[in-house]
């Protein structure tokens, strides 16, 4: 357990001190949010309609942007081999690294998203739902990003491959996440059931991602 927390703390510290972690994700998120109204026009009604989906897209892309950094440095300087040989199973290390990625990308973005949403004329009534669904959903985004990073670690063209591998897995999260935030654009309100399905997918990702990541890392280090 102490291995888990020390790894978590190490990664969070690294993200803060080495720079480029949270700042880049935030900057990218803000860029998408600012460019969107400029690209499609300042129509308030239209912006309000697309705001939850646009915020989810921005979140997803920001998380994906920092994904290939999760394991690269540790793989190159040999820390990953120390983790593999260490007292805790590699699965625990994988969970710690994925969670650290969430703490330094998904979590701050999910908190900031409803606030930045006002740039897109986000409906105030939707803001709490959006925050809740992003808070939960971004856990799975980080878990899957870490899995993609583990699969592509040490590969040429890894950064390109990671998007191709992760994109299909992000589609269900995107659908249920947006549905949980908006309650459905038309028809009956399905936000609470969407939220439950989203949570279920998150739980599946939290269980499977560390196991699959550790298996991929072992295959790479063999």
């Amino acid at each position: 357990m102490s291995v888990f927390f020390s790894l978590l703390w190490r990664d969070v510290l690294l993200a803060f001190r080495a720079g480029g972690g949270i700042g880049t994700a935030f900057g990218f998120f803000l860029t998408v949010i600012v460019l969107l109204p400029i690209g499609i026009g300042p129509d308030q009604a239209l912006l309000q309609r697309i705001a939850p989906g646009a915020l989810w897209i921005a979140l997803l892309m920001s998380v994906l942007l920092s994904a290939d950094r999760i394991y690269t440095a540790d793989y190159e300087d040999g820390s990953l081999e120390v983790m593999a040989l260490g007292p805790a199973p590699l699965e625990v290390a994988a969970l710690a690294k994925a969670l650290a990625h969430w703490l330094t990308s998904g979590l701050p973005l999910a908190i900031a998203a409803p606030l930045l949403g006002f740039l897109l004329n986000l409906d105030v009534a939707l803001a709490p739902r959006l925050a809740a669904s992003m808070l939960i959903g971004s856990v799975a985004l980080s878990m899957l990003a870490a899995l993609g990073a583990a699969i592509t670690v040490g590969l040429r063209k890894g950064g390109l491959l990671i998007s191709l591998l992760i994109l299909p897995l992000y589609i269900p999260l995107m659908i249920f996440g947006v549905s949980a935030s908006t309650g459905g654009m038309s028809g009956p309100d399905i936000s609470s059931s969407s939220f439950l399905v989203l949570t279920a997918i998150v739980l599946v990702a939290v269980v499977t991602s560390p196991i699959a990541s550790a298996a991929a890392l072992r295959a790479h280090m063999r």
Binding site: L147, I151, L165, P168, L169, I171, P172, I175, F176, S179, S194, V197, I201, V204, T208, A212, A215, A216, A219
Partner: peptide, 19 residues
Amino acid sequence: IVALVGVINVPIIKFSVEW
């Protein structure tokens, strides 16, 4: 690993896009 993770997700994706 990629194939197995993918096959777990095929039904989830199918269900989600039908939703």
